[in-house]
Design a protein around this nucleic acid. Structure first.
Lengths: 234, 234
DNA sequence: AGTGTAAATATACGATGTTTATTTTCACGA
DNA sequence: TCGTGAAAATAAACATCGTATATTTACACT
């Protein structure tokens, strides 16, 4: 009935507008409540029009995840590059701080990445992995830099098993030239940070009051003590 | 039209049967895909009949979460009590092992507890907290036992802020008589374990191959070294 | 034996993702 | 300038979901 609106009366890039509206919706109601019809309603569009830009809802979710990973990675890259390359502890601390701050500023995006956002959705690794590897690669780069100058503590670390080597090649296709040891250490560090942050965001931490800031700082200090040398003589 | 079936022809306790069917459904399709109508279909029931046992879907989800927490807590309690009370390291290691094993055996339950299972659902803390506190309390009890015999390392731990004390009282109403320091140390330990386990379950760990077992063991050893003394002279 | 209550069904409503068919708009070549 | 064809939007429909309402059935108790 009603005619199609003129091109200059609507958003130039509707594909981008859909994502932005989706982010608004996610920020308000959370990732699992994402609704194509609600997005269309806000854009004064009918729901099937979205299918001209995304084949289905999963594709939109994938695009959102990739965008979130990109923003997440940008924040960490900026934090790392604010410190000199030789200042490994400074870079590490900055990354850890940026990690938590980004997560607290965008909890829905964090849960979109690491949670189970949508029923039946499984992230297509071939599309998501590069963006995720870029974000994770920031930490890996610092660990690897420490290892190269002999400032990575690996005494008690479990030996790298042969199976890890084949997996490492897949990583190198995206993430860089870190070796298996640096990658494993980075995973352990990442898991510690992710554990605290995800529990904090989920709101299921037991009542320890306002001490979360201090606990997070303590964990960052623990990581630095355990895995890094301040010089290469100790 | 069709008459109501005889009582002895159907499940004695339909309330329990609904939960069991829900678990089946969750195990197959994941927590976010939980559907009341699908449950009813499997039970050869109409969907509104469920409302005689649960006021809405959120109530069912809450019941499932409480059941999951109970099972999770049982596993850790059994693991702890398999070691003598004075064997703190043994108990700690057993709890950590049981934690991961339970999560790997029931990944959907783990994600139901710690993820965002259902759009718009927020866990009612007054109902869920006791069950969650019981599961978390197992770790707390071991940490507190170590503290009481002077085997908890607290040198570098951040001081407990005054705000934590008021929050502690709320914990004591459910969890026991641990003090604020033990509670905070337990949170840090929990976060480390949760971080690795949740990343492993989500399948978003970078390709480090089969080394996850070794990394987990390494982290448990790290926890023991950092927070516990083998005797009270060191 | 009759009656009231509890539990199930039947039906319906609004919302969702998605498909199909139809209409409208725009860009481009004759 | 005028068609023409492709692109993009709408319209309508379908199956599914959670849930509310009204109705019917079965059982327990007096």
């Amino acid at each position: 009935m009603s005619p199609r609106p003129r091109k200059d009366e609507r958003s130039i890039n509707l594909q981008q507008a859909i994502k932005e509206t989706a982010w608004q919706y996610i920020a308000e109601y959370g990732a699992p409540a994402l609704s194509l019809r609600a997005i269309a309603r806000r854009l004064k569009i009918t729901a099937p029009a979205i299918y001209n830009y995304y084949p289905d809802r999963d594709a939109l979710v994938t695009a959102l995840i990739i965008d979130a990973y990109t923003s997440f990675g940008d924040a960490q890259i900026a934090a790392r590059d604010a410190f000199a390359e030789h200042d490994i502890i400074g870079q590490l601390h900055a990354i850890g701080h940026a990690y938590r701050q980004w997560a607290l500023a965008h909890p829905q995006r964090y849960q979109l990445i690491f949670g189970t956002p949508v029923p039946g959705y499984v992230a297509p690794m071939d599309q998501v992995f590069p963006a995720g590897a870029r974000a994770f690669g920031v930490l890996v780069s610092v660990v690897e830099a420490a290892r190269r100058v002999g400032r990575l503590r690996t005494d008690l670390f479990p030996p790298i098993t042969p199976g890890d080597e084949t997996a490492l090649e897949e990583w190198r296709r995206f993430g860089g030239d870190a070796d298996a040891l640096s990658l494993s250490v980075a995973v352990v560090i990442w898991a510690r940070v992710h554990g605290l942050v995800s529990l904090e965001i989920s709101g299921i931490l037991p009542p320890i009051g306002a001490g979360i800031d201090a606990l997070y700082e303590y964990e960052m200090a623990s990581i630095e003590r355990q895995f890094f040398r301040t010089n290469n003589h100790d």
